[in-house]
């Protein structure tokens, strides 16, 4: 199952919940304000670094760009995908769960 998250981790606990309620090894795609979770040196960076070792974490490039986040500022191991990558993830996984 593909899990998507679209809320800022600094404002809502959707990202934490997506981690808690997804099986290890699942794909988690961060879109819209959830892309802020990928920032290194943040107060939640430790959680995210840990998540990278248990899940495949992706961020949507157009949403990163809109918010002025450069790839160099992201936690290592997080993979950047475009809209095509989003579609591929959705096709690869039979279902999509959107944590709002």
């Amino acid at each position: 199952m593909l899990h998507t998250v679209n809320k800022s981790p600094f404002q809502k606990n959707s990202f934490d919940t997506s981690l808690r309620l997804s099986r290890k090894g699942s794909d988690i795609l961060l879109i819209e304000d959830a892309v802020y979770a990928a920032l290194k040196d943040s107060a939640i960076a430790k959680t995210v670094k840990q998540a990278v070792t248990t899940h495949s974490i992706y961020v949507l490039e157009p949403d990163l760009m809109a918010r002025g986040l450069q790839p160099a500022r992201l936690i290592k191991g997080i993979q950047i995908v475009g809209y095509e990558g989003f579609v591929e993830l959705a096709v690869k996984n039979d279902k999509v769960q959107s944590w709002l």
């Binding site: 600094f10 404002q11 304000d33 490039e61 760009m65 918010r67 002025g68 986040l69």
Partner: peptide, 16 residues
């Protein structure tokens, strides 16, 4: 809080 992100430089919405 997240309001500081409004002032982040380099915002580029051309792809979104």
């Amino acid at each position: 809080d997240d309001g500081v992100f409004q002032l982040k430089k380099g915002q580029d919405t051309s792809k979104s």
